[in-house]
Design a protein around this nucleic acid. Structure first.
Lengths: 254, 254
DNA sequence: CGCGATTTTGAGCACCTTCAATCCGTGTGG
DNA sequence: CCACACGGATTGAAGGTGCTCAAAATCGCG
């Protein structure tokens, strides 16, 4: 709550994401004219819901979010995780979203009216261009997860997701060295993201722990054998599609 | 071969896709300055390959294409099908593609140098904007397939894919009424797209045939009971993310 | 006609699911 | 301080969906 207050009080200049993604492209004047609203969302609450029109796109300042689709009978697929610095909610305009977005932890977001952003993008080519970059990167990640769900075994899927999260966390926080990650997901979240059941996720994590590849507990994941994790995931560090540092280099692991 | 010749001979003005997608946004002068090359690709050949740099994006004029990712051991995941009128190859620039694109049948394409297109997009917001629309739409389709692979059973997946293809085919060819589709995919393609084995695809199609929902053979699929197909797929005709007609209306089925 | 690719069918198996019980850490109330 | 509830993690046992291996049938095509 006070985070939201601080956002509206101090505004964009002091925002930790001022230099990231879309905001990097905009002047102070543009940012203030666009009507951005800082907001805190409690854990478990929807930023927007499946089937309900939502006129905003969101910049995630702090906390994690996940995009999900629900089937009639309650089955849930997690489509993507949103980390600090990510933009979510960009999609073909004029369509009701067929997926929702929910806060995993308490989340600080910045809501940007979609039509304002798009109006601006119509006049500012670099901005429109940045949007292409963002959506194309999201698409790459979706493709990578498709391969995992369609063609990888449970162990391979879990290893792949851990590596993806490692890359994405480290990209925004390169100073945090070491192979310990804070991942605010329950095993049920992992299951819904990877097309498995919570029970089987548990056994699979157990296998990885028993093999000495990772250790975990209390929301922390410790990557003990990075090399073997890559091997198991079937991921090539060079060609993997996950976000790089701004210099294009992959975050180091080990 | 002669198709490629006709493309280079007559050029863009006579192209069937002149009024579609990206090309719609460009003037004759821009199109000719951008260095577009019409080309025919024989069935089974790659437009671009996984891991090999490719400087072009492609507009599909005729025939089908599929995007795929290969794992080390030969497992293949089909990420997306490209139909006439689709744009493929847009992705974060400067990255080697982690997936390939292969012609399903003989295909007529139009190769556009990526950097030229992007340079142009940097100066023409509506063009960049159209790119956002295209990639966002692709992303939606990827998300929808993610849900299918992660949370749907084999029958549900097959039904979902058939509906997707129905929508996409009908969108570009609304005049072709009826519920018979020409789908140039082997059961192995369906398997690789849906995360199943060819054998199980066969049995699943058999189930749908036996239930009187579809009939098929010789590359043709006949949707006998559209309503039941929607039901089985768990798809809502109103909110499904597949492309609409230019007036925003879904293609009619039944 | 004969060959290769594709489709179809059968039988056994495995990965993952389902159902269920237990354990554990945390927060809450008596 | 302990009892209790609650969400999440863990473990066990049984079952099913989809896989593997294999062979036969069908189709397209030279």
């Amino acid at each position: 709550m006070h985070q939201a207050a601080s956002l509206t009080t101090y505004g964009c200049p002091s925002c930790p994401m001022r230099g990231c993604g879309v905001c990097r492209m905009l002047s102070e004047a543009e940012l203030s004219s666009i009507g951005i609203i800082g907001r805190a969302v409690p854990a478990g609450q929807d930023l927007f819901s499946q089937g309900e029109p939502c006129g905003d796109v969101f910049n995630i300042l702090d906390g994690w979010v996940f995009l999900y689709e629900l089937l009639e009978d309650g089955r849930r697929q997690i489509l993507q995780f949103g980390l600090p610095g990510d933009f979510i909610g960009l999609r073909p305009s004029g369509r009701v979203p067929f997926f929702g977005a929910q806060a995993l932890s308490q989340v600080s977001i910045c809501a940007i009216p979609r039509h304002r952003l798009l109006d601006l993008a119509r006049r500012r080519p670099e901005l429109a261009f940045e949007l292409v970059r963002i959506v194309a990167s999201d698409e790459s990640q979706a493709y990578e997860r498709l391969t995992a769900l369609g063609r990888k075994t449970a162990v391979e899927r879990v290893a792949t997701l851990l590596l993806e999260l490692f890359y994405r966390i480290r990209r925004r926080a390169p100073q945090a060295a070491g192979e310990i990650l804070r991942i605010p997901l329950t095993q049920t979240h992992l299951a819904d993201a990877l097309g498995l059941t919570p029970v089987h996720i548990n056994r699979t994590l157990g296998v990885l722990r028993q093999r000495g590849v990772i250790d975990y507990g209390n929301g922390l994941f410790h990557i003990l054998a990075p090399h073997r994790l890559f091997e198991i995931a079937g991921v090539d560090a060079e060609t993997c599609p996950w976000p790089r540092g701004d210099d294009g280099s992959p975050p180091s692991l080990q």
